Simulated scan of single mutants.
Amino acid sequence: MVFAPSPQLTVTVEQVGDEEEIHLHAGGQGVWVARMIKSLGVRAVLCSAFGDETGRVVRNLILDEGLDLGAVEVAARNGAYVHDRRDGERTEVAQAPGRALSRHEQDELYNVALAEGLRAKVAVLAGVADEQVLPPDVYRRLARDLRRNGTTVVADLSGDYLTAVLEGGVDVLKVSHEELLRDGRAPDDAVPSLVAGLFTLREDGAANVVLSRAEHPALVLIDGEVFQVELPRLEPADHRGAGDSMTAGIAATLATGRELDEAVRTGAAAGALNVTRHGLGTGRADVIAQFTTRVRLTSVPGHPASAAPDRESRQGHTSPEQLAEGAKR
């Protein structure tokens, strides 16, 4: 189950040869995560609210992609933004934020997400582009209710939403080093400071933490031990979406019953390969599975992890067939 309270409508203007083209897509973190999970052969139900004309368009675009929906019809509109990419760079033209859900609409969305989450092996809690849509406490309650009843909770959040989900408790937290710094959870981006931040997040309620660091190796805290994620360098076509694809890869692999260290490698592979493509949350399962064999979890200089040799020796990768079989189970 992917919790994405209010997906957005994205409108992109592009130049193709001598012609201008306009493309409509469903966007937002939760949509991108669900899209990549589906690409990996695992079924995902996107739990979201849809309202007004933007909501109707976004809902149909999601259904056209073949994604499953736990949809709630609301009066509040979904957000939309328009950007111009005719010169190769992304320039924002206009943005209309999503509207706040009423108390009744919040309750309806919560009940749908809870029901789908309890049916799922893994629940991903994704953020909202417009903070007025939903209060952070909904995330605290949902994380706590799902974990208490046996669902593995993966969260990719920041700010007040991160604080709330930590209070509820989370099995795997994905966060970027920029978000860690912005939230005041680390004083700088030096490795010792970031490692200390990982352990602080663990004390606050995250059982395991994955910290992405842009072009630098990600840092992970698994079962109380710290590792860095080493993978081959690739030239990016579009740097956006790497973190969301990483979250999706972790969740999809856990849903098939694989171990967290393998889930992290798969997530890192999905994120790295996503930046070589145009289109957020896209990729091929067979290519990602092959690239996973090149990803290593190694000791962090100055912070040796006693289990590092064991992590490196367990380099089996998740094949598309294993992903599909796990999704059936």
Rank of each mutant, 00 (worst) to 15 (best):
N60K: 10
V58L: 09
R144L: 11
V58E: 05
G169S: 04
L146W: 00
D244W: 03
I62G: 07
T282G: 09
P135W: 04
A155N: 00
M246Q: 12
L24T: 02
D84W: 09
A26P: 04
L63A: 14
E92H: 10
P136E: 04
R240N: 07
N208I: 00
A26N: 01
L297S: 09
E105Y: 15
V13S: 13
L40E: 04
R329C: 12
K121M: 07
G205A: 09
E262G: 12
V31A: 08
A285E: 01
T152R: 14
A120G: 11
E215M: 15
L61N: 03
E116V: 05
S313Y: 10
E108Q: 09
E92N: 06
R258V: 14
L109E: 10
N78H: 04
T10D: 15
A252G: 08
C47K: 00
V220E: 01
L181A: 13
T253I: 07
A94I: 08
S6Q: 05
A26C: 07
A324P: 06
L125P: 01
E325A: 15
T12Y: 14
V58W: 14
A44I: 00
T266P: 06
E325R: 14
V172L: 03
H23I: 07
L67E: 04
L118D: 06
V170Q: 00
H83A: 11
S176I: 00
